[in-house]
């Protein structure tokens, strides 16, 4: 079991190094960093001195080592556009995105898993067919269209909820949260639902497919033949076995949540990392793009490590070795 975790840890480090390398290559090869940082009036001498100061004349591998080392010490360089430290810019935006993503993921799990189970248990029912049709339309509507529709309905027509920004926020340490004010929650609802709907449909369909597979398995048939009460059969035996593959995929989906937060943040002008990333793409602000990548990959890897631990907790085959 320790080996399993360790193996995953090594794989995660590998992914992080690769993404850091990608970010570094972006910085180094997409456009010339010096000409980005200097103006037209800078002399050739000054440019050369800056080039030397930045270490751009060193060997490639040395530069990458320094880049990685700086990152590990929290030095992420400076934005071409705002001239501020990238670390500060990203740090200020992380809470907004994480709160949005987490609430969206919770919505998708809290609604997706029960409906997935229900539709697997009653595969031919009318309600199931209706839910399946709805989710099919759900996966087919682009996230931004869902956002527009929600804005149109609840913001414009009904006027119940705000359509942009985070509403009232509370400062807790360095964390700006909108989870502690009524106003903040009101602002969070539409973006979180928008982001959650797509994940919800995926989760539901996945749970349904896995659950139906498990329900056909020999051990469920055997348990049925022993007269185990249906409640235990479905929720103790089948659901637990369903969750083993499901949590893996949910971990992978977290990447999708973060990615689609870019779209959601754009539609609702939600001041998170995604919006910052979009702005930096428009202005070819390479350092911010690179760091965003690294941060996203880090969250992805972190979530998947947690998933691996959950996996070990659920599945005894990873915890105790067999003798047969």
């Amino acid at each position: 079991m320790a080996f399993f975790i360790l193996k995953r840890l090594i794989q995660s480090v590998f992914v992080m190094i690769a993404v850091a390398f990608l970010a570094f290559s972006l910085f180094r090869f997409v456009g010339d960093p010096v000409s980005q940082m200097t103006g037209v009036e800078t002399s050739a001498e000054d440019s050369a001195r800056l080039r030397e100061e930045l270490g751009l004349n060193d060997a490639f591998i040395v530069q990458f080592g320094r880049f990685t080392n700086n990152m590990l010490h929290g030095d992420f360089g400076y934005s071409y556009r705002t001239r501020q430290p990238v670390a500060d810019m990203i740090a200020a935006r992380i809470p907004a995105t994480l709160e949005l993503g987490t609430v969206a993921l919770l919505i998708s799990l809290l609604v997706g898993i029960p409906t997935g189970v229900y539709t697997a248990l009653r595969p031919r029912g009318f309600v199931t067919q209706a839910i399946l049709l709805t989710t099919l339309v759900g996966v087919s509507i682009p996230t931004f269209v869902i956002g527009i529709m929600l804005i149109f309905l609840f913001g414009v027509q009904l006027g119940w909820l705000p359509t942009f920004g985070r509403g009232g926020t509370v400062q807790i340490g360095g964390w700006t949260s909108s989870l502690f004010t009524f106003d903040g929650w009101r602002a969070l609802i539409l973006p979180a639902v928008t982001l959650g709907v797509y994940q919800l449909t995926l989760t539901m369909r996945l749970v349904r497919a896995e659950m139906m597979e498990v329900l056909r398995s020999d051990y469920i048939r055997f348990a049925t033949a022993r007269g185990i009460p249906y409640r235990s059969l479905y929720f103790r035996h089948a659901l637990a076995n369903t969750m083993v593959p499901v949590i893996t995929i949910i971990g992978l989906q977290f990447g999708g949540v973060i990615a689609f937060s870019i779209v959601t943040e754009s539609v609702f002008q939600w001041p998170g990392m995604g919006l910052l990333f979009l702005e930096s793409i428009r202005f070819v602000d390479i350092p911010v793009m690179g760091v965003y990548l690294v941060v996203i990959a880090f969250f992805f890897v972190l979530v998947n490590m947690i998933v691996d631990l959950l996996y070990v907790a659920i599945d005894p085959r990873l915890r105790v070795r067999g003798d047969g």
């Binding site: 020999d218 051990y219 048939r221 055997f222 103790r236 637990a240 076995n241 005894p316």
Partner: peptide, 12 residues
């Protein structure tokens, strides 16, 4: 059932 490998719930 036929196959003892798959007849038992692996998680219990």
């Amino acid at each position: 059932f036929q196959d003892p490998q798959t007849s038992l719930n692996p998680l219990m």
